[in-house]
Design a protein around this nucleic acid. Sequence first.
DNA 1: TAACCGATTAGCT
DNA 2: GCTAATCGGTTAA
Length: 187
Amino acid sequence: MTPPAFIDFSAPSVEVAQALIGSTLLVDGVGGRIVETEAYDHDDPASHTFSGPTKRNEVMFGPPGRAYIYRSYGIHWCLNFVCQAEGHGAGVLIRAIEPVAGLEIMRARRGLHEERLLCAGPGRVCQALGITNAHSGMRVDTHPFQLSVPEGRIRTLAGPRIGITKATDVPWRFGLSGSPFLSRPFR
DNA sequence: TAACCGATTAGCT
DNA sequence: GCTAATCGGTTAA
């Protein structure tokens, strides 16, 4: 497939999740290529927005193209891109990144770790890129974020989402084909 | 009580 | 080498 010239965050989250694969995400110049995402839709029982707005998920109900950041299991931060406005609340979870820029900074933030595990998982991505809820609600295409689409053609894989118990049958997890930086392999 | 997870440990092959 | 189990804080149904 030919990648779009830019990411249209008002598109359905499943399309955005696919379009983001291969894109480069930097936060203050640190980051790399997005190799794994998951889509969460507004009528999706696995989505935080399914039961309506709360204090935590309110930015999911705001304008698209923003960062929704939540604390996972009380310990980790997880980064989502808000996809749809108009009272629905859909988004894309950034699950893994191939480290490209600021390797030493990421290693320092994560503690001694091999490159493959620097950003292989949603909590690890946030730790390596220095993302906290201070970034919640910020646009993901302006400072300190930097988002650029790939030049070449991208081969993506699809499969069931990870770590959820509802709607486990929809293949809304996407990955870069052949990437060794996935949080888990596709099968 | 369950959840969009990660580090560590214990037990396997 | 691998998988299964366990624990760790917060949020919200």
